[in-house]
């Protein structure tokens, strides 16, 4: 994974992306007990606005010998799924991501509060399960999460999930 992160940092240096943050399952694993997840979800903010922010990225990576596989691209053995930050919450999650060091390589992971809010917004069954894990195991600032939930119009779903969790 270290080599994968070096490639991701290289994308930023090359100016292909403005910024990135690890989210999804692997992002959650940073905060909770490890669980099975298959790919590395990387949320990106493109350097230039355009309709196809992933096109130049894929072109560059393919030229470097990394092959796409379904919706992912295999970078140094790790399936990476690039997802453009397509709404305000995701853009904020990328810009306010935590800087961490993984085996000597700097990288960025979404904050626990942003991850939880993104889970509520995405709303799939697996997001709900991960949200429950986050509530139980991650160190979440409840005030920060509550403000975020209000700001992004997620209050109803958040309360519904919170109730389900408390009744468990």
């Amino acid at each position: 994974m270290k080599k994968t992160l070096v490639v991701l940092n290289g994308l930023k240096k090359q100016g292909l992306i403005a910024d990135y943050a690890i989210g999804g399952g692997m992002g959650a694993v940073f905060y909770v007990e490890p669980f099975l997840t298959y790919d590395l979800d990387v949320f990106i903010v493109a350097d230039k606005p355009g309709l196809q922010p992933l096109e130049s990225l894929y072109r560059y990576l393919k030229k470097r010998g990394f092959r796409p596989q379904q919706e992912q691209i295999i970078i140094e053995g790790i399936p990476v799924q690039f997802l453009p930050a397509y709404n305000k919450l995701l853009k904020e999650a990328v810009s306010e991501a935590r800087e961490i060091v993984y085996q000597g390589t700097a990288t960025r992971v979404m904050t626990a509060e942003h991850l939880a809010a993104v889970m509520v917004q995405t709303g799939r069954t697996k997001d709900r399960e991960r949200f429950f894990k986050m509530i139980e195991e991650a160190k979440i600032d409840p005030g920060k999460l509550a403000r975020m939930v209000e700001r992004f119009g997620l209050r109803q779903k958040f309360l519904q999930w919170k109730r389900m969790h408390d009744e468990k």
């Binding site: 994974m1 692997m26 694993v29 940073f30 905060y31 909770v32 007990e33 490890p34 669980f35 099975l36 997840t37 298959y38 961490i100 993984y102 085996q103 139980e136 195991e137 991650a138």
Partner: peptide, 26 residues
């Protein structure tokens, strides 16, 4: 829950190793 909390407190690199092992098992 105590066990889970301990697992959650592991360093990220160690957690990634566990995820890779889980992928292999799966």
């Amino acid at each position: 829950s105590e066990f889970r909390r301990k697992q959650a407190a592991m360093p990220f690199a160690r957690k990634v190793e566990v995820v890779v092992r889980l992928q292999k098992i799966a």
